[in-house]
Design a protein around this nucleic acid. Structure first.
Lengths: 123, 123
DNA sequence: CATGAATATCGACCTGTATCTATATTCCGA
DNA sequence: TCGGAATATAGATACAGGTCGATATTCATG
């Protein structure tokens, strides 16, 4: 059933959020959530509650390869390099972005499963 | 098509967010979003980025009638009455809750369409 | 190994907001 | 119309976090 599908990224687990976790994500509207679950889910929504970070997701998704070098993102956003780097770090640690070094550059991609989980939380 | 479904509550419109608006909500991953759209969507996610507010949604949804008197919520949450009132106001103004006075009490309910819009933004 | 480009970290500043107490407002019943 | 319960508002405080400049780190290249 929908309510107990497996959760791959640990929204409601006490794990580092950029690592897979074997748990389930109770939908907000159909299950009683514990204080820990509420805190954990809120922390992910808070990451999305920033225009600059939504713009990063939007820009990455717009690429055909679904990944972007950090320096390109810095050029596009009207923010300083440290600020963009900070946002990327926050999103990576929230499990929303992948991160891969290739030579000089670091490529960021979107963890679509993570967004799918959030959708299921709202279902 | 999914990408251009009507948006009933104005996530991406410059309207009071607790009023209906005739617009569409571009999915974050498949459309270029304007700065205004990003700001507006972020403001709604920010509302959800608070454990106390998620708990309110969770409590309201748990009721068979799908609505709760504010005083009951105050009794349940470990927060002062003004703080709960503040959170309810924020959620109401974000279009996430309905609000109806019935005698002495004020009943809050969940705007499920609003949550559905957020899901479509993440799709 | 030195240089420069890309990225991350540090420390400081400042705004936003969650929270409280105190008080105001609104409504119903006696 | 008066008193009390329910809710909202106001004002103050404290903390989280977004932002920046400066600096450190990492890597490819000559």
């Amino acid at each position: 059933m929908e309510a107990n599908i497996a959760c791959q990224s640990g929204i409601c687990q006490d794990h580092p959020m950029n690592q897979p976790a074997p748990c389930c994500c109770p939908p907000l509207l159909t299950a009683r959530l514990t204080s820990d679950e509420l805190t954990r889910i809120a922390s992910i929504f808070r990451v999305l509650g920033e225009p600059a970070r939504l713009q990063l997701l939007n820009l990455i998704a717009a690429q055909p390869q679904q990944e972007v070098r950090a320096c390109e993102l810095v050029e596009t956003l009207a923010l300083s390099q440290p600020t963009v780097s900070h946002h990327l770090k926050v999103m990576y640690e929230a499990g929303l972005l992948t991160k891969e070094r290739r030579g000089t550059w670091i490529y960021y991609g979107i963890v679509t499963d993570r967004l799918a989980e959030l959708r299921s939380v709202l279902a």
